[in-house]
Design a protein around this nucleic acid. Structure first.
Ligand code: SF4
Ligand code: SF4
Lengths: 137, 137
DNA sequence: TTTAAATACTACTTTAAGGTAGAAATTAAA
DNA sequence: TTTAATTTCTACCTTAAAGTAGTATTTAAA
């Protein structure tokens, strides 16, 4: 019951950038130090975030990253979706690909309520709404 | 947001054995075919389940496996705990080791409610209570 | 007493995620 | 125009989980 490291990093990175939108641009070196994410791994994820259109990058000296769209339009669910994390948890705690209510897996009934609650929570939590202050770990 | 394969297999195996307690013993070959779990991997997990005292094994010809204690005393939470799955999800969706409410991680407030619900669900769901019929996948 | 059916043990291989290294490309400042 | 600060690309290494193979051990039936 853990998100992948990549997803967790992505959430933390985007949250941090959202919280510091006043500073126009964030660069990889600083992000890496502040968020305690290995530099090379972070830049790999940043490229992903750019390709997935969460982030705009400005290359070259004085370049850096900023949000591609407003923090209020990016939900945690969007992020998880982009990193293929949704396909898992939204479907089945036991990993079934297709949820057939006629042929319930053994935890179907029990899992239904928590599943709905989690999904709602992820959908409603936009970057704008994130309050916590500890972006590390 | 997935359980490890090992945990999922363990849940399915124990559920199936609980549901068929009338048949005195289950053997690895049949379990492997019925549950569609690779034979060699299944026997590895069975040994774990024996060591962790969920299962009693009878060796030799006509041997097999049965529950070591009553289905009503084994919760999904127990199983996850035994396979070190709890340490993760019970603590933090973002993977923090220690949850310090003075120093909330960015999803603390949102995660609190779903987390409680999931944990309750796992704790309340004993093998006896599992209703679903599809033990595969 | 031999044999067949079962679990248990030891060791290896495969796969995917996580992470690292080095160099290329871009761009503004000096 | 050179240089330094930046992102981007390509390729590789590491680790843990998942899965496989072979053999030893146990035990009841034949
Ligand atoms: S039956 Fe329930 S738990 Fe199983 S796959 Fe479908 S939704 Fe998931
Ligand atoms: S602050 Fe909340 S989400 Fe973060 S580690 Fe603690 S319990 Fe988990």
């Amino acid at each position: 019951m853990q998100l992948s490291n990549t997803s967790k990093y992505a959430i933390r990175i985007l949250s941090y950038i959202a919280k510091n939108e006043d500073k126009k641009l964030q660069n990889a070196k600083e992000l890496s130090e502040i968020l305690e994410i290995p530099y090379k791994f972070l830049t790999k994820i940043m490229t992903d975030l750019v390709n997935k259109e969460f982030i705009l990058s400005i290359r070259g000296r004085e370049g850096g990253y900023k949000l591609a769209r407003s923090a209020s339009t990016i939900s945690v669910l969007d992020i998880l979706n982009a990193f293929n994390e949704l396909t898992h948890f939204s479907e089945c705690i036991l990993g079934s690909q297709t949820c057939d209510p006629q042929k319930k897996c053994i935890l179907h009934d029990q899992w239904a309520k928590p599943r709905t609650l989690i999904k709602q929570m992820f959908a409603e939590t936009t970057l704008e709404k994130i309050e916590g202050e500890d972006f590390k770990t």
